[in-house]
Amino acid sequence: MSELLLTLAVKSVLVVSVCMLMVAYLTLAERKILGFIQLRYGPNRVGYWGLLQPIADGIKAFLKEELTPANADRKVFLLAPIISIAAPMLLLVVIPFGDTVTLFGREFTLYLSNPDIGILFVLGISTLGSYGGVLGGWASGNKYGYIGGVRSTAMMVSYELSMAFAVICVVLLSNSLSLVDIVHSQAGVWNIFKAPVAFLIFLISGLAELNRTPFDMPEAEAELCCGYNVEYSSMKFALFFFGEYTHLFILGCLTTTLFLGGWHGPLLPGIIWFFIKTFAVIFLCIWQRATFPRLRWDFVMKLEWKFLLPLAIVNVLATGFIVAIF
């Protein structure tokens, strides 16, 4: 029993620290990639090739003055960044980074947990993460924050639907709600080939949930000057920021798990394949951020309610039909 606990503790620490380090370097990667696209260098002053930049950013965020607006709702104001980082970190629990490996004559699973309802857990917790933005915007006592919070609410309500419908397709195809089983079922053909429409819907809804361009409504820096996090400073802001990147990382992991065959791949070990695919998805997200202008608020809503959602429903029906016949 104690051995089991020890294994679990070591694995938890390992997953959290490795993933958080990756997320930290994701900020550097984003700035570097944007830099290359935009004819500039990106950070290159701290450490070789800017490699110590995330650490410098972290130290800076810690040392900044902490401000809480006088008319803010203090408790909720404090709670919001915690929610926004905690929810995506919770999701790390169910991400299957790889299959089992044998070390010291023992078998270890490369995931912390494999609940039978894995995918429901993911959908539930990731929605919870959106409350960070909503509450932060409302508690700030700032009109820009308020508008950002309202937008965040609407985004949460709408894009969650199409995302869930896209996931249902995957569930239908693999006959299981467990993420590990879903990956196992893709040993032959990846889900992206079986359900390309669901993949697109999932990716678009995922970007919208992440609040990334072209869907970065709640924080559109040009119009709302950062929206829901406008009043946040110091570590509280850093938590929002970090939460967003963790969410991006999770989106990469989930897309890999659900559609790109998880750890499956030739030659290289499974875990390496997993991260290659994850970072490919993340690169796509960064790339499109550099390319597209921002959509307008009403277009974003129209896109969801008039296009994505009907498409997702039809897609579920079609997939169900095909699964039932063959």
């Binding site: 944007l34 696209i37 935009q38 004819l39 500039r40 361009t213 072209p214 970065d216 559109a220 040009a222 951020r289 550099a290 390319t291 597209f292 202008p293 921002r294 959509l295």
Partner: peptide, 11 residues
Amino acid sequence: LDIGAMTPIFY
């Protein structure tokens, strides 16, 4: 940049 396309300004 205002409309959200962040790259043209660098070009």
